[in-house]
Simulated scan of single mutants.
Amino acid sequence: MMEDDNVNEVRVGVIGLGNMGKGHIGYMLENKVKGLELTAVADKSQAAREWAEQNLPAETTFFTDPYELIASPLIDAVLICTPHYSHPELAIACFEKNKHVLIEKPAGVYTKQIREMNEAAAKSDVVFAIMYNQRTNPLYQKLKELIDSGELGEIRRTNWIITNWFRSQSYYDSGTWRATWGGEGSGVLLNQVIHQLDLWQWTIGMMPKRLRAFCYFGKHRQIEVENEVTAYAEYENGATGIFVTTTAEAPGTNRFEIAGTKGKIVIEDGKLTFSRLRVSEPEFNESFKGGFGSPECWTFEVPIKGEYPDHRGITQNWINAILHNEPLLAPGAEGIKGVMLANAMLLSTWEDNWIELDFDEEHYWNQLKKRIETSNYKEEVIHGV
Rank of each mutant, 00 (worst) to 15 (best):
F217Q: 03
W318P: 06
E59M: 11
E9V: 10
Y110G: 02
I70C: 00
N366K: 15
W177S: 14
T315S: 15
S174N: 02
V10N: 10
N227V: 13
R135I: 01
T203D: 08
R221I: 03
G23D: 00
Q201E: 12
V279R: 11
Y377K: 12
D310K: 15
G13N: 03
W51K: 04
Y171A: 06
I130W: 05
D352I: 05
A330Y: 04
R276G: 07
S287R: 10
K219S: 12
Q367D: 01
E145G: 11
S186E: 04
I204V: 13
E184R: 11
I114R: 02
T64L: 07
R135M: 04
V41I: 09
A107Y: 06
M28K: 10
A233V: 09
R221F: 04
W160K: 07
D148S: 05
H84G: 15
R156D: 13
I267C: 00
I258K: 06
H324T: 06
E236V: 09
P331R: 11
I372M: 07
E96V: 09
P251S: 04
H87R: 12
P331K: 00
T203K: 01
P309T: 13
N159S: 08
N137E: 12
R157L: 07
F63N: 12
T261P: 07
R278D: 06
